[in-house]
Amino acid sequence: MLRDAALVAGKDLRLEARSRVALNQVAPFALLVLMLFAFALDPDRGILARVTPGLYWVAVLFSGLLAVQRAFAVESTDGVADALRLSGLDPAGVFLGKVAAVAVQLLALEVLLGLGVVVLYGADPSSVALLVPTCLAATLGLAAAGSVYGILAAGLRVRETLLPLLLLPVLAPVLIAATSAFESALGGFPGEGWRWLGLLVVFAALYTGLGLATFGVLLEDG
């Protein structure tokens, strides 16, 4: 199963390395979102600094949505879905591979956005001990839930509108928990943040488990 996962993840990352869609389109989009927030909220540092954690995670969520959509769009054209089914790869392995590939891209995006909020919004990233595990747990949750709904909506004509409707409410707990953890880390009282990190870990574990259990059923569709 892990070998299959590595194969799928490797394939997706190679695809990204060659097509550079995430690099050339999703990453600039994420930065653009940060700039739009600054325009909308009046670049008065006072407001921006207070709402930085929320804006950061909303930006991650929106650009992550694009990354998930992209990751599954490549599986739904040219009969790739059938090929994937016929390949004999373990569905759980395919799921883990997809999650890993999406998570790697999301982490890269988060680093970029992190630099963005430090430079543009003047955030202070000194509580690394809390920020990094929060990012990791939130990313795993985003990637796992995103992969479950991504494969579900892939290949449907209404996928662009259906995926956000299904995925965003599911990801709301991640947004809430990650924002709260970031708030306490950036605000200089990291003690509060650990409970939220716990919630992120539970969420990630829950959706990884659900994905492993249901991916076989979801892959049956063409």
Binding site: V148, L156, R157, V158, L162, T214, V217, L218, E220, D221
Partner: peptide, 23 residues
């Protein structure tokens, strides 16, 4: 409920709906 109204083959729609329902 939106998934249940997707214009798909019934069996496929039911399968998708069942997974979303589980969640």
């Amino acid at each position: 409920l939106a998934v249940r109204r997707l214009p798909l083959e019934r069996e496929r729609r039911s399968r998708l709906a069942a997974v979303v329902g589980l969640l």
